[in-house]
Write a protein that binds this DNA or RNA. Sequence first.
DNA 1: GAGTGGTCTAGACCACTAA
DNA 2: TAGTGGTCTAGACCACTCT
Lengths: 242, 242
Amino acid sequence: MAKKYLNIYSEIANKIENGEFKPNMKLSSENELMKEYGVSRDTVRKALNLLEQYGYIQKIRGKGSYVLDVNKFDFPVSGLISFKELSKKIGMKTNTILEVLELIKPDEYLMKQLKISENNQIWKVVRTREIGDKRIILDKDYFNKKYIPSLTKEICEDSIFNYIENELGLKISFARKEITVQQATKEDKKYLDLENYNMVVVVKNYTYLDDASLFQYGESRHRPDRFKFVDFARRRTLYPNG
Amino acid sequence: MAKKYLNIYSEIANKIENGEFKPNMKLSSENELMKEYGVSRDTVRKALNLLEQYGYIQKIRGKGSYVLDVNKFDFPVSGLISFKELSKKIGMKTNTILEVLELIKPDEYLMKQLKISENNQIWKVVRTREIGDKRIILDKDYFNKKYIPSLTKEICEDSIFNYIENELGLKISFARKEITVQQATKEDKKYLDLENYNMVVVVKNYTYLDDASLFQYGESRHRPDRFKFVDFARRRTLYPNG
DNA sequence: GAGTGGTCTAGACCACTAA
DNA sequence: TAGTGGTCTAGACCACTCT
C-alpha cells in the first residue's frame, strides 16, 4: 500500500537529516536510483522533485543532484505545523494552558473571517503557550461547529490538529498565513509575559480542508523578541504574463 | 521552444486572475484537457500540479479540479519577489533612494553570513524605499564580487535582480528568508520615517544560484505598521519519520 | 561521446465520487 | 457503473556538462 515515491523520498530525506548524506554530496543519478530501488524513472523523479521542493537537494542539469545544507533547528519551520509538532522538533520545555473553551455565536468580524452567517455556531479556544516558563504565545482559534461537533479540555491541551486529522478523519489541505505587527491589546498584556514590549507579532491563519472549505480561523500572538519565521522559497518564475 | 505544460499553466492561471474562471468553478477534467490542448495526460497533470502548488486550484480525487479564491492584492506576496516586481503588482507610488554603494572588505559578521573569507570583496548596497512619500523600508544588501563584477548607481536604482538574471545570465534558484522583530538601531532611525515606533521587522534573506552557491545576503528592515507577509502553504505530511 | 536531468508520450491499474 | 484524479511503467528525444 506504500507509495513507492514517498518511500524513496523519506529514505533519502532521512539520510540527509541524519548526516549520512552530507552537504554538497552528489546523489546517485536517476538511472542508478532506478536500479537501486527497482522502479521506473518517473517514480525516481517524483521523489527527487519532492526533495528539491522541500530544500533537501538541488538538481543541476547535466551534472546531477546535490545535497543542500539543511538547518534543522529553525524555529518555527516554514509551513503548516502545530505547536505540538514544533515543540517535539526543537526539544524545549513547553506548556499549554487552556484559558477559554466555549461555543459562541459569531460577531461581525468572525462572520467575515470564516465566511459564515450568524446561524453557525463557533468553537472559541484561547490558549497560552509557555516556553521556558514564560508565556510567549497567545493562540486564539475559532472552529466551525459544522466540521468539529465536539471539543474537550483534554483535546485542547493536547493537539486539536491531531484530533481533527486522526480522530475525525478530516484532511487539512492548505492554509493562508498572514504575518503583521500590532500594538499589544489589554488581552495580550493579561495573558502574556510581555515585559516592556508594547507590540505583538500576529500570525493570522486560515485553514482549509481538502474539499477547499474554510473551517478554521486563528490568531497566534507572539512576544516580538521570541518570534521567528523561517521560509525556504524557490524562485517563482511562474506568474502569468511573465 | 515553449514548454507545453508551462503554456497550459499560464493560460489557466491567467483566466483565474482575470476572473474568466471564477472561484469554485470546476475545471475540465484531465481527459478533456488532453483533447483541448492536444497533449498527453502527463503534460496536463504537470500544469495542474503547478496550479495547485501556487494556490490557484484544488484537486479532489474522484471529483475534479476546482478554482480557488485568489487574493491578488496581498502585499507582499509570498516567495521571492523583488521590490520592483512588487511595486508593479500593487500599483502604489513608490521610490527608491540609493544611500550607499561601495566595495568593502567583509567584517566578521558578513564573513559568517556569506560563508566567505576576508579575501573576498563585497558590494555593499543600502537603499531606502519610499511608499506614498514615507521612507518605509531600509534594504541593506551584500553581494559577492566573485559573482557580480560591477554595479552602478543606475542598476541599484532600477532592479539588481533584473540585472543579475537578464544581463549577467545568472540563475537565481532559491532563498532562505528569516523574519524577526528587533529594536530599531540608530541607522534605522536615520534612514526611515519611523514616527514613534522603536522596533523594526527584519527580513533576512540568503539567495542562492542554481549551482547552490550563496551569492547574496540582505536585510530588509520595515516599519512595523507597514509590514505584511502573506504565505500560502500546503500541508506538509512529508517529514521523514512521519 | 557518454552521462545527466528535462520534457513528452501512451498505456495500465487503482481508489475515490457520484448517479 | 462511469468518470475522476493518483500512481506506475517503458520508452523516446532533447539540452546541458564534463572529458
